[in-house]
Amino acid sequence: MTARTRGAQTVMNLIALELPDVITDWPAWLESHLVGVHLRDLVQQLEVIQGTPYQPMTLDAALANKRDSVLLNGLKALDEQQIVALVRSPRLLIEIQRLIFESGGEY
């Protein structure tokens, strides 16, 4: 799946359209992108697809009291509402990547 500009100079994999149909599959799918090289593309594509200006949400608000659980067990520690919130505010995915990478946690 690709988007091409006229003149075929630019090709982009439409990763965001590969979002699994079932929300319970989202955590594992998102985690695969946290450690992949296309996270930035995914974040920007999700923002374009939503079509509305980026609505900032803080990571603390998104994770609520699950911050430590995420550091221990990954995104599967979050409930469906929280996972959907991450996809709706996709820049938080990059913040979560930083949180996980910069922590000395087990995950």
């Binding site: 988007a3 500009t5 982009m12 439409l14 930035r40 920007q44 594509q45 374009v48 079509g51």
Partner: peptide, 20 residues
Amino acid sequence: PSEPTYDQDDSRLDALRECL
């Protein structure tokens, strides 16, 4: 430096917008 910068002028994203 850990804050990503987002290109305002990204032809690939413009192409996606156009497709949508």
